[in-house]
Amino acid sequence: MQASRIAVAGASGLIGSALVRSLGADGHQVVRLVRRAPRGPDELRWDPLRQRIDAAGLAGCDAVVNLAGAGVADHRWTAAYKRRIRDSRVLGTVTLAEAVAALDVPPRVFVNGSAIGFYGDTGDRAVDESAPPGSGFLASLGIEWEEAAAPAEEAGVRTVFARTGLVVARQGGAWQRLFPLFKAGLGGRLGDGRHYWSFISLHDEVAALRYLLDTEELSGPVNLTAPEPLTNREITAAMGRVLRRPAVFTAPAPAVRLLLGEMATDVLTSTRAVPRKLLDSGFAFAFPGIDETLRSALH
């Protein structure tokens, strides 16, 4: 992509901040959406929960990327926090999609965050982007989240749903908590360890998002996961191997549910998602396997 003006919502998060750094390093002008008074011309104020944004601030943008949303694993899933998770994604997406649709000259592409939770529990069955939605809170959230982008799609803007898996990084997400445990020799599998985790390195996540911006033939849902998902048992073994620590502890499923409540669904559910669209279109993963993914996160 030639130097472009790109708006990014969720620019302070794990993925968003890495994306902004990558785009800026290549000379792109990034407009970060913030929920406070802007501190410069590279910031645009919005209020996703009240569905307010100055659409004129998006004028001239070649692309809009929406990665905003309350952290799924930041708190126990009380009814109030589940509402916050949902509203921060769905209302934010509606706000941006309507703003994009209202522009006289809309952006070429709208990349909207989504998640492989859309598929629910798939057990041992591998699923690609053609699979139907599953059941449960995260699947219902995924449906609403993606449907909220309809105004942009109806306005003729190429719209892509980045269904992201478990991002492996030291700075955030599940691995921010896992790495210290395993380094201390206290790591181990969760439950029986047979459930699949569809992981992706932070490097490949950012590269894939940029690929979605550039690749005109890609639209609709696209799985952002490494080519071969692994079971929690296999990932646990890799953690021990890479960190050179024992990984013999086990957290029984009932204990995980007692500790995390309904949120335990997110770490005990088996979602074996494969990135069929990325692979078929020629995207090359820098870190396709778990060992190199873990090493890239550590170094």
Results as ranks from 00 to 15, higher is better:
143 I>Q: 13
225 T>P: 11
193 G>Q: 02
70 A>C: 08
65 V>T: 05
141 L>I: 07
89 R>P: 15
262 E>W: 09
296 S>D: 08
124 D>L: 09
250 T>R: 08
71 G>W: 04
240 G>I: 05
298 L>A: 10
205 E>A: 12
288 P>C: 09
145 W>L: 11
22 S>A: 15
289 G>V: 06
102 A>C: 03
151 P>M: 04
182 F>G: 09
194 R>G: 08
250 T>E: 01
84 R>A: 14
173 G>Y: 06
222 V>I: 08
65 V>R: 08
242 V>G: 03
10 G>N: 11
113 G>V: 07
72 V>F: 15
223 N>L: 05
289 G>A: 13
263 M>I: 04
189 R>D: 00
235 I>D: 02
61 C>I: 09
207 A>D: 00
167 V>E: 00
128 D>S: 14
192 D>K: 12
236 T>A: 06
89 R>Q: 02
161 F>P: 09
167 V>P: 14
284 A>K: 12
286 A>H: 14
233 R>C: 06
283 F>P: 13
168 V>Q: 01
220 G>M: 10
262 E>P: 14
181 L>H: 04
241 R>E: 05
165 G>E: 01
195 H>Q: 15
299 H>K: 12
241 R>H: 15
15 I>L: 14
99 A>Y: 03
157 V>S: 05
32 R>W: 09
112 N>I: 04
196 Y>I: 00
189 R>K: 15
249 F>C: 02
103 L>D: 00
98 E>I: 07
170 R>L: 13
